[in-house]
Design a protein around this nucleic acid. Sequence first.
DNA 1: ATGAAAGCGCTAACAT
DNA 2: ATGTTAGCGCTTTCAT
Lengths: 342, 342
Amino acid sequence: MKETDNSRRARRGSGAITVRDVARLAGVAPITVSRVLNTPAQVSPDVRQKVLEVIQKTGYVPNRMAGGLASSRSRLIAAVVPSTVMSVFMPTIETLNETLFDAGYQLMLGQSDYSAAREEALLEAIVGRRPDGIFLTGILGPSQGRTRLLASGIPVVETWDLTPTPIDMLVGFSHADIGREVARFLMDKGRRRLALIRAEDERAQRRADAFTEAVQRAGLGPVETVNVGASRSLRSGREALGHLLAQRPDVDAIFCSSDLLALGVATEARVRGIAVPHDLALVGFGDVSFAADMAPALSTVRINGAEMGRLAARCLIDRAEGRPVSPAVFDVGFSIVERETT
Amino acid sequence: MKETDNSRRARRGSGAITVRDVARLAGVAPITVSRVLNTPAQVSPDVRQKVLEVIQKTGYVPNRMAGGLASSRSRLIAAVVPSTVMSVFMPTIETLNETLFDAGYQLMLGQSDYSAAREEALLEAIVGRRPDGIFLTGILGPSQGRTRLLASGIPVVETWDLTPTPIDMLVGFSHADIGREVARFLMDKGRRRLALIRAEDERAQRRADAFTEAVQRAGLGPVETVNVGASRSLRSGREALGHLLAQRPDVDAIFCSSDLLALGVATEARVRGIAVPHDLALVGFGDVSFAADMAPALSTVRINGAEMGRLAARCLIDRAEGRPVSPAVFDVGFSIVERETT
DNA sequence: ATGAAAGCGCTAACAT
DNA sequence: ATGTTAGCGCTTTCAT
């Protein structure tokens, strides 16, 4: 009764319980409720007790949007991934999300679908939310989005790649090194007619180029390449092997741009009676969970995606909480895992 | 110069450009800038033009947290999934996210890791953000979280299941029907010694129970079941087949709780020289992208995950924008896709 | 240890 | 069609 003076403007409001309500019921000022929640040490035990009781009783849940506005700290982190379904990036996102959540942050997830236009739109939407940090899959070339991020001043971590010109922080590894090392690995195994099956994406391209260059430098002629475009499925791998064999029936080793493609190639090889690894060696990329458990088990390039997620989360949290991050560039490396397909 | 009167309290602020800055530069009131962005039709073309120019020049990006606070509309939707890596739920999340983004909403993603405790914590964090809607994977039994959601008044859509007592909206299908129909399907194929390989989760349990009951009702004795627990990998499938054969070497049909488990079973069967489907029929669940492309191609239960995501997004958007949603319950059904493993 | 005042950046309500 | 005013619910600053 006569509590609220709404004699003039009828202002909406969500109708939910607010700090004011809790404060009134506990007989304290709103700021005290805020302190009980955020800096409990500053409040005497009995007052704290009383306030917590009221919170419990009323089911009060603080409005973090309002808190974020007042404190300029949203406790929101945005992440952009190219895709989510059966994607090699998900272990990274999973640990990113876990680490963030345990530190009191939440994750906003956007998919770019490997489209630059969509990525731009995403970045604009993201900046509008004033997240405390942004996680990017891959590195961002010169673009309006890059400019916008730079201008926003929001901490950014680029991942899954290396560049001499990061926007801010960087957690990645060298795709060129991978291409070179896998080529060397296969050639050391005595393979001589090497080929590539890859999806259309910038990083796969970088691995492919280095692979090709290394093979040619070794004097092993051209590297037949099948580009499956945007279709990263098991089926693409099967079909790609068909195309490849039509071009170059004597191929004896293939480096695939993903483990799923490699599983497709292995499947098609089995159906065609091609012995893996005897007739055909196979190397995948990603070391996803099924790679070790296929029959034959897949040799592949292991990326510690979970570690990247954890590290990226740590970088962003540290910066969000005002701690400097140095170094700001981490090369998490990779390793070639030899199994049965080579 | 003498623009701002900060003679008294030095109040922080993020330092970013605000509506006020834009308004001043364009020679209009802040609300006019707001209208240019939100209801452009209400502003005369020349003023609109001028304001847009200033926005362009300054790189102004509206603060949506502030907007959300003022309008009680966050344009944020939260989603809870059990897991994200190689998960059958991701196609749903992908279309959910796409549909939301195209309508101007953003997605906050939380993982429960199949843990009720974590789910509770997530729901509390989510409610604190005052999202315009919440997407839940699965249905939420009586719990503090359910009470909290009900109390919050936020639109909720539960998915991937059916219940007579939804919190709010529901987009799902019947797991019991699936169990029954798969049992019937396999028995109609002449299979007599049926078994189950399943992960530890409530919905898989429901399918398994109905499957077992249907088999027993048909007088085909007990259904051997291997529960792989939380480990949903290809390896689990391989190992589970080993265990199953140790218990019941004469099994002639297996219903797996996921396609990935089924791929594991198929792999192990091949390694052991068991002919699929001749000696052993196999049915998966999910119809994930690789199911059709395995060799032999996997018979499985198709769920239209993408459709569920789209539909759930539509429900949430409609409710967020004040449009009533009726009916509020959608059964998207399922279908048994027969391929080579049966 | 607690509180009063001010205001984060935006938009709804009420003018004109 | 545009502006004025008053908040949304919280936290910072300053005072006691």
